[in-house]
């Protein structure tokens, strides 16, 4: 399935990826080629086949409800782009 340029822009927006205008065509071409590759799947008869999200038929282990992690704010915020008074700062979020 070929994608048009508006679809590329929509997908980029949904993915929060800034794509320069001069690159849209290249992405359009590449992504369309990838979709052509995966379109082979459409022909496969998968009626009644349960989708397989995990390679092993394992089930979730449960963790005891115990506090094991303690304050490491300074350690974690040492690698943050912008913090103040213990908060991560971002451009104003409009509500």
């Amino acid at each position: 399935m070929a994608l048009d340029q508006n679809q590329i822009r929509d997908i980029a927006e949904l993915s929060r990826l800034q794509i320069d205008d001069d690159q849209i065509t290249a992405y359009q071409q590449n992504l369309s080629n990838i979709l052509a590759l995966v379109d082979q799947l459409a022909a496969v008869d998968t009626q009644g086949i349960e989708p397989m999200a995990h390679p092993l038929d394992a089930t979730q282990r449960l963790r005891a409800d115990v506090v094991t992690e303690h304050n490491q704010r300074e350690h974690f915020q040492a690698i943050a782009p912008h913090t103040e008074q213990g908060h991560y700062l971002v451009p104003k979020v409009v509500e």
Partner: peptide, 24 residues
Amino acid sequence: MIGTYALSAGFYDAYYNKAQQVRR
């Protein structure tokens, strides 16, 4: 972007779900 597209509304069954069936 391919992943975003494959999971987006209207395409999930044709792509993601199908791929997970083929995976089995």
